[in-house]
Design a protein around this nucleic acid. Structure first.
Length: 540
DNA sequence: TACCCCAGCGCG
DNA sequence: AAAGCGCGCTGGGGTA
């Protein structure tokens, strides 16, 4: 049974979409607790689920209309649906509505004030979405994508609710060890100050190393030919100032991004609770906001520590994107290379000589490298794995022509922006600019199909895992094993110690299931490394 | 003061 | 054995 929740009422529908009844709802959590087996349909999981979790109510499945709408609006598989052909309305992002000032529905909303004047109708929207999926070119794939996306929305709220266990005193000890004692406001900790003095001495000129402009001038005054102050450029230079400078940059970065003020701002009561944003990236990857959750540096992962009597199960999908490419393209040779470590398999195929070469060559193929070692190795890869490389090449050419490309389950790329549109001018500089922009968009679409399909695999992996963990928990979310972190191809489960081995098995089994969901019986494997540890720093 | 952009770097 | 893809965040430095 589906239950569509709106502002103050709930409408029940049978699985085939027949209206069963409607009733008013005063307390959503209480109502949800009385209908635990329902599949919830709501405008936005972030709006409803936090209060349910706070009241101790977990939801097994939902339809997130906002996220589903965003996918269906752009999917090439549903391009002929009423939903896709309608002008922008309340279910579209505000920016899209602004782009169409003539749209009649836009007039209903006072965009500058933020809140819509009229509540969008979730029942009508849900019906439109069901119709769009049913009449699409591939209802099974698109349906799976929407289910996975919605499961992701539940997981994102649950992860924020549970929080990532992080011990503040351990984090502070790590900082003190690397930087020195916490400085007063506006001052540098001892180790940073000492490095700065070394720099000033070596370059024989006083400057503020935190200012890229001043640093550049300082380096040039000392006679160093540099175009920027990027670390990778500095590494090529031999000069006594370079080593302390690189060290300074590394430590300075740690302090500003994940130092004492980060700890105070984002960690409370032993938990780091960032906001996860499913579908926040065009490709379908998650984004996050608040504390840079998806950039947690390796330096401080040792402060992510399981509770007493609990363990962290850290799992990583090995070479996920190349494997997804092999499966999408049906490249049997590449699938075979992935039977074990995929990069070793590529070496064994004879395409390249070393594992390191295999890795940069694969990255180059998926990102569109044209120069350097990476670019030079791609042709060898194309010879060994013609179907896989042809797929990304096709995606690149389509993007260069301004066309849309689509992931395995049906998420389509946006159209290139206005700056991309072919310029009317015939002067050579404009021609060259247009060509460069079209190539750039081609690199984006090339990567889109791989990164986006890998994101779909990861969503299916997590959704499947969530179901397995659910079965191991008899009551509240955080009394049993639960997801606490997700990083594109990596998850962390916080679990009571006695269940850790079983959780690791769940994770591996969920990975196999995700592969079958996306690619059926194809002989492409998705191995996952699992580590049962006390702290995140011990993994890998 | 409030904002915006850039350079740079963390993660995958 | 890269400088090709996707993000978020910070401090510096500029403008209004």
């Amino acid at each position: 049974m589906f239950v569509v929740l709106s502002r103050s009422s709930a409408s029940s529908f049978s699985d085939d979409g027949t209206l069963l009844g409607q009733e008013s709802v005063d307390d959503p959590a209480e109502f949800a607790a009385a209908h635990l087996s329902a599949r919830w349909v709501w405008d936005d999981t972030r709006r409803w689920y936090p209060q349910l979790l706070a009241a101790g109510v977990r939801v097994e499945r939902c339809v997130d209309l906002r996220l589903s709408h965003a996918i269906l609006r752009h999917s090439a598989l549903a391009a002929d649906s009423d939903l896709a052909r309608a002008s922008a309305g309340p279910w579209d992002a505000a920016a899209e509505i602004r782009d169409e000032p003539s749209s009649p529905s836009a007039a209903l909303f006072d965009l500058d004030e933020g809140e819509p004047r009229m509540e969008p109708d979730p029942v009508a929207e849900w019906m439109l979405q069901r119709e769009a999926v049913a009449t699409s070119l591939d209802p099974a794939r698109l349906g799976l994508l929407l289910a996975a996306e919605s499961a992701g929305a539940l997981i994102a709220v649950e992860m924020k609710f549970a929080g990532l266990p992080l011990r503040g005193e351990v984090h502070e000890a790590l900082l003190e060890d690397l930087l020195g004692a916490r400085p007063r406001y506006g001052e540098r900790p001892a180790k940073l100050e000492a490095l700065k003095q070394q720099l000033v001495t070596a370059l024989e000129t006083e400057f503020n190393p935190d200012s890229p402009a001043e640093l550049l001038k300082g380096l040039r005054r000392a006679g160093l030919q540099v175009e920027s102050t990027r670390s990778w450029e500095l590494k090529k230079i031999e000069h006594p100032a370079i080593a302390p400078l690189l060290e300074y940059k590394k430590l300075s970065r740690l302090m500003t991004a994940n130092g004492w003020s980060w700890l105070e701002t984002w960690v409370a009561n032993g938990r780091f609770r960032p906001e996860y944003i499913p579908g926040g990236v065009v490709t379908g990857r998650w984004a996050a906001s608040g504390g840079g959750a998806l950039q947690l540096p390796k330096q401080i992962r040792g402060a992510v520590i399981a509770d007493e009597g609990w363990k962290l199960v850290v799992a990583d999908a090995a070479q996920l994107e190349p494997r997804v490419l092999a499966a999408m393209s049906g490249d049997a040779a590449m699938a075979k290379a992935g039977e074990g470590d995929m990069y070793e398999g590529i070496v064994a195929s004879g395409a390249v000589a070393t594992r390191a070469q295999a890795k940069v060559a694969m990255l180059g193929a998926m990102y569109g490298a044209t120069t350097g070692d990476s670019g030079r190795l791609v042709p060898a890869l194309a010879k060994a794995f013609p179907k896989a490389i042809a797929l990304v090449e096709q995606a690149a050419r389509a993007g260069e022509r301004g066309e849309v490309v689509t992931t395995r389950l049906g998420r389509s790329s946006p159209l290139p922006g206005q700056q991309w549109q072919a310029q009317s001018s015939i002067d050579a500089a404009a021609e060259s600019r247009a060509r460069s922009q079209s190539r750039s968009w081609g690199r984006f679409t090339r990567n889109f199909i791989v990164q986006g399909s890998a994101a779909e695999w990861a969503l299916c992996w997590m959704a499947s895992l969530r179901g397995k963990l659910w079965e191991r928990t008899d009551s509240a979310l955080t009394t049993g094993p639960h997801l606490v972190f997700f990083l594109h191809d990596e998850v962390i489960v916080h679990t009571p110690e006695h269940l850790a081995e079983q959780v690791a098995a769940d994770i591996r089994e969920a990975a196999a299931q995700a592969g079958r969901l996306l690619f059926g019986a194809l002989p492409v494997t998705f191995p996952v490394t699992t580590a049962i540890v006390d702290n995140y720093g011990q993994a890998k």
